[in-house]
Amino acid sequence: MLRVEGLRHAFGRVRALDDISFHLTPGQTLAIFGPNGAGKTTLLKVLVGLIRPQAGTTHVEGGPRAVGWMGHQAHLYGHLTVRENLLFWAALYDVPAPLRRARVDEALRRHGLADRADEPVRALSRGLVQRAAIARALLHEPRVLLLDEPFTGLDLAAAAEFRRLLAQLAGAGRIVVLATHNVDEGVELATDIAFQQGGRFVSLGPRGGRTAGAVAEEYRRAVAGG
């Protein structure tokens, strides 16, 4: 369960979060759409514990260990191989030592990185680094997955594969929150949709039967004033 109540945060005079509240239960996927500077990244950073909000509370069932986080950057070391990076993060997330190698091998296979596992991350393309970042975020089998612009850099096939994976995770009872400025990404995965602007959720509710086109049209009306 993920519960957020009355979050407020400002950077100087810029209001990044303004009274954000929502509640997600296992299996729900919240897609947050908003233009650049709307406060999406700040919201995710508060949820993951990187920023302490000036007001409001967040609660993630299971604590930090239950959260998987993928930010704008991959959080991988360029001079370590993909496998070494994943083993390192698995150790920090307390994946039991006897399971670590098998878990990493499975992640490498699932994300199409098995052939490149022993290459340093700095030798990989942007798309492959993004896949490795996804593998890293999922390694400890988090119950809550927080994704900031997760489709950036993925080619069409990798993006489709990632969408399938997210659907599987939601189907298996994970909570997914994904933030993006691109309404075409992630709509079909979402059970709930929020539009964020100026730090506020100007709209939040179940997706219902709305198509991507309908959501895009609503987004334009709600956020872009069009």
């Binding site: 260990r65 959260v67 986080w69 950057q73 959080h75 991988l76 307390d94």
Partner: peptide
Amino acid sequence: QLELDNQALEGLLVAPI
């Protein structure tokens, strides 16, 4: 400086350590 590589420091701060 090592931790600035792909913002790995952010990953460390988020990790349950």
